Simulated scan of single mutants.
Amino acid sequence: MSFLTYLINGLSLGSIYAIIALGYTMVYGIAKMLNFAHGDFIMVGCYIIFSVSAALSGNSVVGIIVAIILCTLLGVTTEFVAYRPLRGAASPLAVLITAIGVSYLLENIALLIYGADIKSFTSVINWEGVSFAGGQLKIQGVTIVTILVSVVILIVLQLFINKTKQGQAMLAASEDK
């Protein structure tokens, strides 16, 4: 039964990696830019959830909503301030180096604010999960929700790209700016 447990936990972690890779792929496919700060935006979102949850005594849902809003604003601001002025630069390395700079900036700001110590907070998912085979195989609720949410995100993104006007415009821009 431990093999199945490892397999299911691997699927959960792999689904998180798939969502992150999808973000990298979309940015590179459309903008032809490697955004090395992509993971750092995720880090910022996690710290926002951590801070808001701590301030509201564990209310993670509000933290998630605030993180989505603030990370969107941070991404748009970074695009206008750091990346857009370099789109027509003579060397494509200019945007790449700027992305590395944005990555270092976000990491060091987080280090200044939160320090290097490990931070932890309670899970957003309070569901115990399910047990099979008389309790020998237990799948945690957070594992199930992670896999399901990742699948839903992948399906919704696929539908958005293929069925909406904005998605079609993104596909067209990736083919020919």
Score class of each variant (00 low, 15 high):
residue 1 M to K: 04
residue 2 S to G: 07
residue 2 S to Q: 11
residue 2 S to L: 13
residue 5 T to V: 07
residue 6 Y to M: 11
residue 8 I to W: 06
residue 11 L to C: 08
residue 12 S to K: 09
residue 23 G to T: 04
residue 24 Y to D: 08
residue 27 V to P: 07
residue 29 G to W: 12
residue 29 G to H: 10
residue 30 I to Q: 04
residue 33 M to T: 15
residue 33 M to Y: 09
residue 34 L to M: 15
residue 37 A to C: 02
residue 39 G to W: 02
residue 43 M to N: 08
residue 44 V to F: 05
residue 47 Y to N: 02
residue 47 Y to Q: 03
residue 49 I to V: 15
residue 52 V to I: 06
residue 54 A to T: 00
residue 57 S to I: 00
residue 58 G to D: 00
residue 60 S to E: 04
residue 62 V to W: 00
residue 64 I to W: 10
residue 66 V to Y: 00
residue 66 V to N: 02
residue 67 A to R: 03
residue 69 I to V: 15
residue 69 I to P: 04
residue 70 L to I: 14
residue 71 C to H: 07
residue 71 C to M: 13
residue 74 L to A: 15
residue 75 G to V: 06
residue 79 E to Q: 12
residue 81 V to C: 09
residue 81 V to H: 06
residue 83 Y to L: 14
residue 84 R to W: 02
residue 85 P to G: 06
residue 85 P to K: 07
residue 86 L to H: 12
residue 86 L to I: 10
residue 87 R to T: 10
residue 88 G to Q: 12
residue 90 A to P: 09
residue 92 P to R: 09
residue 92 P to D: 13
residue 92 P to E: 06
residue 95 V to H: 02
residue 96 L to F: 11
residue 97 I to G: 12
residue 102 V to H: 10
residue 104 Y to L: 12
residue 104 Y to R: 07
residue 105 L to V: 12
residue 106 L to H: 05
residue 107 E to V: 10
residue 108 N to V: 02
residue 114 Y to H: 08
residue 115 G to E: 00
residue 117 D to C: 03
residue 117 D to F: 08
residue 118 I to Q: 05
residue 118 I to H: 13
residue 118 I to T: 10
residue 118 I to M: 08
residue 118 I to A: 14
residue 120 S to K: 14
residue 124 V to A: 15
residue 124 V to D: 14
residue 125 I to G: 01
residue 128 E to M: 11
residue 129 G to D: 09
residue 132 F to N: 04
residue 134 G to E: 07
residue 137 L to G: 07
residue 138 K to I: 11
residue 139 I to S: 04
residue 140 Q to E: 15
residue 142 V to A: 15
residue 143 T to C: 08
residue 144 I to S: 06
residue 145 V to H: 07
residue 145 V to I: 14
residue 145 V to L: 10
residue 146 T to I: 02
residue 151 V to N: 03
residue 151 V to Q: 02
residue 153 I to N: 04
residue 153 I to P: 00
residue 154 L to R: 08
residue 158 Q to H: 13
residue 164 T to L: 03
residue 167 G to F: 06
residue 168 Q to S: 14
residue 170 M to H: 07
residue 170 M to D: 11
residue 171 L to Y: 14
residue 171 L to E: 05
residue 171 L to Q: 15
residue 171 L to M: 14
residue 172 A to N: 05
residue 172 A to Y: 03
